[in-house]
Computed example of a mutant assay.
Amino acid sequence: MELFGYSLSTLYLGGLILFGCLTLLYVLIGDVMEAAGEWFNPTLTLSFLTFFSAAGYLMESLTSINSGVIAAVSAVSSGLLSAMLHVFVLVPIATAEESLAYIESDLRGRTGKVITGIPADGFGEILIPGISGHISKTAVSYNNVLIPQGTEVLVIEAEKGIAKVMPYEQAARLS
């Protein structure tokens, strides 16, 4: 069967090449296209079209089934493969990416250890242990007192990338 003067296997192969290249291009510059919104997912659309073209080309080339049946089978199989890609790959990746992030207000009340001494009127560095790894933050003394290296500290507040801390023992005495 022919469509637009080309055999269907040629159209399927052309679609496979085109959509495969677009998928590769999307992987490289996908962040620019994220502005399209949540209702349109280019990854799923391109994967559906690529799977559809690949299945159609293979079935046109290797079988003698009616072209309408081939298109229907290709659409169903690519829909299933795209759904599996979404459920088993894209959703877990999206949730894992969010779980590693933190906001500075989450650091309030956490304890850490001074890795670079904090002078009374200057900056030092603390290391805050966490489930997904350690967080290193620039720190200042909340009470403008010297906090030596190795001291356990309590984060009182954090803003603009700087944690205001006080020695944990001192904070325990205040409460």
Rank of each mutant, 00 (worst) to 15 (best):
E60W: 00
A171V: 04
V155G: 05
E125V: 08
S64E: 14
A163E: 03
T50W: 07
K113C: 07
A71C: 04
L90F: 01
L46N: 06
Y26H: 13
F51I: 06
Y142E: 08
G109Q: 10
D106L: 03
I103A: 10
T45W: 04
G14N: 12
L58Q: 09
V27D: 06
G79I: 11
A172F: 12
L3I: 15
V89A: 09
L174M: 13
P119I: 11
L3A: 15
L154K: 07
F123I: 14
G109S: 09
S61W: 08
V155H: 04
V155S: 05
K137P: 00
S53W: 01
P129T: 01
V145F: 09
D121M: 08
L13E: 03
E157Y: 02
M59K: 07
M59Q: 13
P129V: 02
Y142A: 02
T63I: 10
K160N: 15
G30W: 02
P42D: 05
G124C: 01
M166Y: 01
L16C: 12
A163F: 05
L81G: 02
V155W: 02
E38T: 15
G14L: 10
I128C: 00
L58S: 14
V27T: 15
T95H: 11
G133A: 03
S136Q: 14
T50K: 01
S7C: 04
G56F: 01
V140N: 00
F19Q: 04
I156H: 04
G150S: 04
A94V: 02
K164C: 06
F19A: 07
T50Q: 04
N66M: 08
L146V: 10
G112N: 06
L85N: 11
M1F: 10
M166R: 05
T23R: 01
G5M: 03
S105P: 00
N144K: 13
M84D: 01
A163W: 02
L16F: 14
E125W: 00
F88W: 11
A171R: 07
A120L: 07
S9G: 02
G109C: 09
R108K: 13
A72T: 14
P167N: 13
F88T: 09
G150D: 07
Q149M: 09
S141E: 04
F19P: 06
